[in-house]
Write a protein that binds this DNA or RNA. Structure first.
Lengths: 347, 347
DNA sequence: AAAATTTATGCAATCGTTTGTAATAAATAT
DNA sequence: ATATTTATTACAAACGATTGCATAAATTTT
């Protein structure tokens, strides 16, 4: 212990082993070591085995900085999560986190690392920083993006894939579900159950939510119903205000018999609040959620939700990004993740 | 569009700007550019402004690979999530994900990046790879670690911080909650409600769970109860088997009036199953969960759980790691995250 | 057996920064 | 007016890998 701390003070930190050292010990040149370690056919089999065994036994591992400097391929993809500087909330949204998990799965399956960074929305240029600095070979952006214009101006022809709504005239590849259709499906599901006054809980400032709302209106039109403006509540995905919003509706005697929640969190919170107010679900008010996060399945009673497969979304994002990186195809088309109305359950 | 694809085929990718280019344009040497960009006092104020402005306007950013090769400081911490090669499940456990989110918050607050990698448990040496290769300056390991011995042999004096139970004779720094106490608190809570036959749902192969079970036994002893072996069910955190387990207990007529679940997922699943079987909660069977994941708060009826603050845990992990890195203190003490029995709710 | 080919290895340049040291110009002291 | 100090800047050597090219040894061909 004391020897240790002495070490720390007097000597430099124990020098990292490098190729030169391995080379010296193996009695070959560094070129040979490099080739051996990378399985080049230019090195004798016997030598290769000897060198790799030596390297292994000495616990040597290639310096990634140096390698990257030469090769410009660092096997790393950055996932950027923007946040509002106004309320720099934590990364706690289960949708984000689940997406993050699936992206991690997908990337590690492809032998890549995932670099996570959070950036403030008012420092948008930072989105590309991990790529520009050579930290990552590409960028995945998750999060409802409020600043489409700025993003659009910045990222043309860069290796970037965005989760979110398709916007008019967009210069980047985005993957997302068809929010218009999702909104339509959810609303139709409620209408088919005979609901006539359907509350919409979601913040229409977000493009994705706006599109869902359009679907909501479309369903109303299709079934000859009119949507009451008063029933549109700008609730954030995190559902913080939902209890108060519902109570407020009831206090104002604004009646409703259906509720379309733009996230499962909102749905869960709404159901909880309604039950607390002794309004039976689904008898008095039917609720449909959105996302189908894993936890929704554990909720009791089970909730009906618009399933957008986060796993498929993650896979598509990764695939799209690699396509761009490999120049296989550059398109600004949106890939759609299929949507299903379903009762959330564990399978 | 066609011009674009042509470009892709004929030209190399547009060469990255480098210091040399900036230097040439600014009419100075690269050293000066480097110093200007890093705010060195060895460069004239006027020059500095001119150079930084130029770099900014050209959207130049320092190549991280080259910089890292020189400086050995890449501002990156790796978070390693081990998984069982037997069942390579997805990163979907909400506890993991929440932890991941908080670590990301904490690191980004400190101006660092988070690198996520999943490794197979039978390739343990890979834990240190991100550090050994110079990809990251330190490692955080999350996850119930089944292979304490191997880990222990490998990581002495390396910059690594582990989330988990404290093990005898450990050579690494670990952060975790006092599982013994947690198990005790949960059980005591049930006993104080008059419960006498308390089922334990958790896989004792995991050190953390084993410690909780010890706490469970301790509480029994304290209150002069005997724990029935038959009531100890090896349920995984993910709760997949919980429904079947409960039904099996009931079919075998093994009665119980309390249930201590080692994760909130288990608790939620158990409550759902019991309700489905018309066994009222908490009247007939009282349930206590563990973790206090965010979503538990949305569950209805609200569930009682042992709160271990994941946020505090994440902060402690990061802090401990930086302490090691900065040689501020190397200790193999465990830092405890405080525990509270509480009804999960949104605040 | 000599020439041509194949196989295995080493040399040295390179990737894009940072930084110790030397060089120059400007400012101050003698 | 000269010597000394101070402020800027440039030069060139690292950092640790990869790889085109040259070379030497082993093999095959003629």
């Amino acid at each position: 212990m004391s020897e240790n701390s002495l070490n720390k003070q007097t000597n430099k930190i124990q020098k990292r082993l490098q190729m030169q050292d391995i080379a010296k010990l193996a009695g070959v040149s560094t070129s040979t070591v490099s080739r051996a370690l990378n399985g080049s056919s230019l090195v004798n089999e016997e030598t290769r085995l000897r060198v790799t065994a030596l390297a292994q036994s000495l616990n040597y591992s290639i310096d990634i900085g140096a390698q990257n400097l030469r090769l410009k391929n660092n096997k790393t993809v950055a996932v950027v999560i923007p946040f509002d500087s106004a309320n720099p909330q934590h990364v706690s949204d289960p949708f984000f986190l689940t997406m993050l998990g699936h992206i991690a799965d997908e990337l590690s399956m492809l032998g890549h690392y995932m670099l996570v960074s959070r950036i403030s929305a008012d420092n948008l240029t930072a989105v590309l920083e991990p790529y520009e600095s050579g930290r990552a070979i590409g960028i995945i952006v998750i999060g409802q993006w409020r600043y489409h214009e700025q993003l659009n101006a910045m990222v043309a022809n860069k290796p970037i894939a965005v989760w979110g709504a398709k916007m008019p005239n967009q210069h980047y590849v985005s993957i997302g579900s068809d929010n218009l259709r999702g909104g339509y499906l959810a609303t139709e599901h409620l209408i088919k159950q005979g609901r006539k006054r359907i509350a919409f809980f979601g913040n229409k400032d977000l493009p994705e939510v706006a599109q869902r709302y359009a679907g909501y209106l479309m369903a109303h039109q299709k079934y000859d119903l009119v949507a009451d403006q008063q029933l549109s509540i700008p609730a954030p995905f995190s559902a913080d205000t939902v209890s108060a919003d519902i109570e407020s509706l009831i206090n104002q005697s604004i009646s409703f018999d259906g509720l379309f929640a733009c996230s499962d969190l909102i749905a869960m919170r709404a159901i909880g609040t309604l039950q607390k107010l002794k309004i039976s679900v689904p008898e008095k008010v039917a609720v449909v959620g959105y996302d189908d996060i894993v936890l929704a399945a554990y909720f009791h009673p089970s909730i009906t939700t618009i399933k957008q497969s986060i796993e498929v979304g993650a896979q598509s994002l990764v695939k799209a990004l690699f396509n761009i990186i490999n120049h296989e195809k550059i398109s600004s088309e949106q890939l759609d993740v299929s949507l299903v109305v379903r009762e959330s359950s564990i399978n």
